[in-house]
Design a protein around this nucleic acid. Structure first.
Lengths: 242, 242
DNA sequence: TAGCACCTATAGCAACGCTATATGAACTGC
DNA sequence: GCAGTTCATATAGCGTTGCTATAGGTGCTA
């Protein structure tokens, strides 16, 4: 269970910190826990990493390597915007797979002090967007697009992490993703899902009626009728395509 | 400088905590600082608030009152989507004006434990989106749209807070905002019939849905269900008032 | 005046991040 | 082969943290 093997203490500390972080379920991880699991004493930690934050930065750096590897681990599809989608999904999955690590990386915001990792992630996204721009598929500067997309990506991932795993709805991610990509892309690029115009007027009208009915109680239907009516309405308004 | 006035200790604690939080520049605020500034001792804090988090929750609740007040403090423009834009801008401004409070409210994400305030903010946004939906301006469920928009809104605000105040570029906010709103809105600004002047939105939406259903066959309902559905729809859409 | 909640203070615990100091081991120069 | 230097780890403990067991004061009602 402990890292008492023949690894050097520095490595043992890194692994112990990463493991405790992953299992901490959001609770803070103390240096005493880490050093005990690593089988060393406190000064060793401070000798190698300066302070607790230094150790965590090192863990984050290792985590970022993994993150970058994931972000590059697919063959370019030839459609840069499609690759952006995969980067987005990969980002979300990374966050959901290792929420504690993700929170240390992207969730530890402090005023006026930007985590270096955010800039790195933006650069990664911008690099990919440059290809889209070169293909004439971008209607804004790649840098601005990257910042905007990443901000939304982080926001969505944080929200999903905060939700109980049981009722996590990944549609929040895909919906926001496509919205952002569509917005920065030139119109003909078919950025949104194929059935863009497929959201027929039926669905739109059903959504409108649903909202209107809930706002003002109509007395044209009995309560039992209304219940069934709303159920059908919901079925129509959430129909996958027209 | 201290709150030694005639206010009750509970209030003094609240104000001291809020003040220290606002001035802390990201550094953690200790209970000893708070109790000293409030002019009370530790047990008083725990008597009134249970623990440190309870006190901070109370501060957040007060902050949320202010947030909600800001979100409601403008006359409805008659264009729901324009109001959504103002809610977005208001959210960002709230975060930039009181970054530490904002970070406690929206930045304190933990796995699988959703801050109550997020749900409240979503409800606020959804409420406004319902008006847009009733006007036929939404092509997704108001709830999903609210979650998506708020996630992006939080992500952008966190990014802006993390940036040095000098080179904060609010275009990141407006760009992301418009991207999200555009994505959830219908292209044709008015899906409902043009003659919506005299009739309630329920009737207008029912008429629109009726027409849309007849034009394109939805297979979400069986034929018998559809028959009854259309009958009810007719009853609603011919309702004299409501 | 007696009793009873309510509220606050004294004093202190365990855990925290961190460090002054010391010891052992490995390498270097002569 | 030995002193000098540097690196790496341990012992012990400092100051601060969130929090609490216990007790005392205060004002109300009976």
């Amino acid at each position: 269970m402990s890292f008492d093997g023949q690894l050097p203490p520095k490595m043992r500390l890194l692994r112990a910190a990463a493991e405790l972080l992953a299992k901490s379920a959001g609770a803070p991880v103390s240096t005493r826990q880490i050093t005990q699991l690593a089988g060393v004493t406190a000064p060793t930690l401070y000798h190698h990493f300066g302070d607790k934050e230094g150790l965590f930065d090192a863990v984050v750096a290792a985590g970022f390597e993994e993150y970058v590897a994931g972000e590059r681990d697919f063959a370019p599809s030839g459609q840069p915007l499609e690759d952006i989608r995969r980067m987005w999904d990969n980002h979300v999955q990374f966050g959901l797979n290792q929420p504690e690590l993700y929170l240390v990386m992207f969730g530890n915001i402090r005023p006026e002090s930007r985590p270096a990792i955010v800039a790195d992630a933006e650069a990664l996204m911008e690099e990919m967007l440059n290809k889209a721009a070169a293909a004439g598929q971008l209607n804004v500067q790649p840098r601005e697009a990257a910042r905007s997309i990443l901000a939304a990506n982080v926001g969505v991932t944080l929200m999903l992490i905060a939700e109980p795993a049981t009722d996590r709805n990944l549609e929040l991610s895909t919906m926001t993703r496509d919205a952002m990509i569509f917005a920065v892309s030139t119109d003909q690029a078919k950025a949104a899902s194929p059935d863009d115009s497929g959201k027929s007027s039926v669905v739109v009208a059903a959504i409108a009626l649903n909202a209107a009915l809930q706002a003002s109680h109509s007395d044209q239907l009995s309560s039992s009728e209304l219940k069934l009516f709303l159920e059908w309405l919901h079925r129509i308004s959430t129909s996958p395509n027209s």
